[in-house]
Design a protein around this nucleic acid. Structure first.
Length: 627
RNA sequence: CGGGUCGUAGCGCAGCUUGGUAGCGCGCCUCGUUCGGGUCGAGGAGGCCGCGAGUUCAAAUCUCGCCGACCCGACCA
């Protein structure tokens, strides 16, 4: 392996000759791809689709993939992580212990061996890494340890799409840290997080670090690396100060309490058949003039929504999953976000209460549900009675002291001037609303905006979930068993490649960053002049001998136009044209693919020019991340 | 899993309405031509028209069923 300078890994100094390269470029976009990265990667002969979300890597694509992997390896090794390689085909048992066999559900490829024993194709490897560490390490002296692998992962996506961005077979780098305590975990988390940033900067992909929800992975703190692209499937929120959150973890600044001393006493009004927000407004604007003179708005209404929490099996419920109805009060002009609500009740899912659920709670009168029928407002202190009262939560936007027009739990009856904190209490505050543009940022820097992104990595402080479930303990200084703290960290390698292509392309084709390009230089011969062909051959060898990777278009029966078009499609960052200028005055043309610039240099100056261009075109890491 | 669009040569597509022995462009092979922006010309190879049933003298074309791909949604890191 040769090096041309810091950070450039060279795999093959033999030039890649297009006359023999296993490559066929396509003039048309494939009919079954929609995003630019997939269209171009297929057209340029980097990948070939075999089935939805499943791709073959062709020589050029594989070279880019290998480049990205090499950068990941460098950064992981530098962060003190050690590479291993686990099987992708795994027995069911370890995933039973952590309940993920069920939790992952249909998204996991499950299969049976010839004896009928259940196996799976691993979607991620927390269990296996925990068991691996457990089987060798058992002393505090062994920790901390961080292991990683770069491996093919499998997820049986309901709907693969966007080429490599949402595949069913994809390549991921996943690392796992085991430390004695939370302090150690936080240190390793930070090291991994820094390493991720360096990787993304070196491969030339944009990213935003987004505070996120750890979801089915379990654990506490988690951040996502989102590549901001309009084709992304995720939406994250950005504050004016530049901080970012996944909508599931967005918190609402506590609203200021309102002085309710002048608010009239709550009054029950007969609203007849007005059940929906619109009907309530129509009624109120006709029959209940406001003292402040303005019209009633949906935001004056406290909408009480009955939801059902889907609890997993537990001992108090005969080891069966069970359904708990709750009521959540939200402003009438807003909608519930079930995922955000569910985030408050891990590991449960939340759905709208079904008719069946509501039948069990006749006190909740559909269309007239109010706070008085539930939560602390309905409890009497009598155990038998209270066990039937549903929990009542208020959305975080509801201020103490605010007054509401809301249901009174009888057909046809509503309250006005019902004051939060004065007339009713709740069992707690929830982040229940669908977040929208203009909502206030948690960091107090102003209104939120939203952006779409592709998740190219995520880091988790898992804590003790897996180590506990799999009984991994080590002996501490006092000889006592102690459960290690765990973190897991993943980079979507193939997905990152697709994102790089999304950022670095134009209407003509791909434009690879120097660090990951399939070659650094694309040399083309033009015309039939034997001298020029000879010179091209000489230059290619010069470059190769200097450790530069060359894609050499040495095809003799291909016209200039075709060579230019192919070069643009493939997207090697530097192109050298050896042809008529060389014949007339001994110069070659050096073009920069992405910038579209070109310069003419004497043939014997080409090597030094290319060397300095390569150095100057390498993506750099920010100073704060320098090692 | 629900809704929609579509399956014809390696790739992109026409033909189907109104049944009659399958076409175009790119790519591929041969010969010539051209040689700095997908040259031009001539000749050629390549198809279980997604699969299965049915209607018919006759089905790529009509009917039914199945399978598959893609898009939207549900789902999902």
């Amino acid at each position: 392996m040769a090096f041309t300078g810091p950070g450039i890994l060279v795999f093959m100094t033999e030039p890649l000759r297009m006359s023999t390269l296993f490559l066929r470029t396509m003039r048309n976009d494939p009919a079954d791809e929609d995003v630019d990265s997939a269209k171009l990667l297929v057209r340029a002969g980097f990948i070939k689709k075999e089935a939805p979300g499943i791709f073959t890597w062709l020589p050029l694509g594989l070279r880019v993939l290998n480049k990205i992997e090499a950068i990941v390896r460098e950064e992981m090794n530098a962060a003190g992580s050690q590479e291993v390689h686990l099987p992708a085909l795994l027995p069911k048992d370890p995933y039973e212990a952590t309940h993920r066999w069920e939790e992952y559900g249909d998204d996991m490829f499950k299969l049976k061996d010839r004896h009928g024993a259940p196996y799976l194709l691993a979607p991620t490897h927390e269990e296996m890494f925990t068991l691996l560490a457990k089987s060798y390490f058992n002393s505090y002296k062994d920790l901390p340890v961080v292991l990683y692998q770069i491996q093919t992962k499998y997820r049986d996506e309901a709907r693969p799409r966007a080429g490599l961005i949402r595949g069913r077979e994809f390549i991921m780098e996943d690392s796992y840290s085991f430390t004695m305590d939370q302090t150690g975990l936080k240190q390793e988390y930070q090291r991994q997080r820094d390493a991720f940033e360096r990787v993304y900067q070196r491969v030339g992909v944009k990213y935003v670090i987004v505070k996120s929800f750890s979801g089915p992975m379990g654990g506490s703190a988690s951040e996502e690396f989102q590549s901001p692209l309009p084709i992304g499937e995720d939406t994250f929120a950005l504050s004016p100060a530049g901080k970012a959150w996944n909508v599931e973890v967005l918190t609402t600044p506590r609203p200021q309490a309102i002085d309710a001393s002048a608010t009239p006493a709550a009054a029950k009004v007969n609203v007849g058949s007005a059940r929906t927000i619109d009907q309530m407004l129509t009624y109120a604007n006709k029959s209940l003039p406001r003292s402040d003179g303005r019209q009633w708005a949906a935001s004056d209404i406290l909408k009480n929504v009955a939801l059902t929490i889907l609890h997993p099996a537990d001992q108090d419920h005969d080891n069966k999953p069970w359904r708990e109805v709750i009521v959540v009060g939200i402003p009438g002009d807003r909608e519930i976000d079930l995922k955000r609500v569910a985030a408050a009740f891990p590991p449960c899912d939340v759905e709208e209460a079904s008719e069946e659920d509501l039948k069990k709670h006749p006190e909740l009168v559909v269309g007239y549900i109010g706070p008085k029928a539930c939560g602390p407002n309905a409890r009497t202190g009598e155990k038998e009675h209270d066990s039937h009262v549903v929990r009542y939560f208020l959305d975080a936007h509801i201020a103490q002291g605010s007054q509401w027009y809301t249901g009174a739990d009888e057909k046809g009856m509503d309250y006005v001037h019902l004051v939060a904190g004065r007339d009713f209490q709740s069992d707690g505050t929830l982040e229940a609303l669908q977040v929208r543009e203009g909502d206030m940022s948690p960091d107090g820097s102003g209104p939120l905006s939203f952006q779409r992104g592709v998740e190219i990595g995520q880091v988790f402080q898992l804590g003790l979930k897996y180590t506990k479930a799999l009984n991994f303990t080590v002996l501490d200084q006092n000889g006592k068993p102690s459960t290690p703290w765990m973190g897991s960290y993943g980079i979507g390698v193939s997905r990152t490649l697709a994102c790089i292509a999304e950022f670095h392309h134009d209407e003509k084709g791909l434009c690879w960053p120097m660090s990951v390009a399939p070659a650094q230089v694309h040399v083309m011969t033009m015309g039939k002049n034997a001298q020029a062909a000879q010179e091209a051959e000489k230059l290619v060898h010069q470059l190769s001998d200097a450790g530069i990777e060359v894609l050499f278009d040495d095809r003799t029966k291909v016209s200039a136009g075709v060579k230019f078009k192919d070069a643009e499609l493939i997207g090697v960052p530097l192109e050298i044209v050896v042809g008529r200028d060389f014949v007339s005055n001994g110069t070659v043309e050096i073009r920069q693919r992405e910038a579209g610039t070109s310069q003419s240099v004497a043939a014997d100056q080409a090597l030094t020019t290319v060397q300095s261009l390569i150095t100057s075109m390498m993506p750099r890491v920010e100073d704060r991340l320098k090692r």
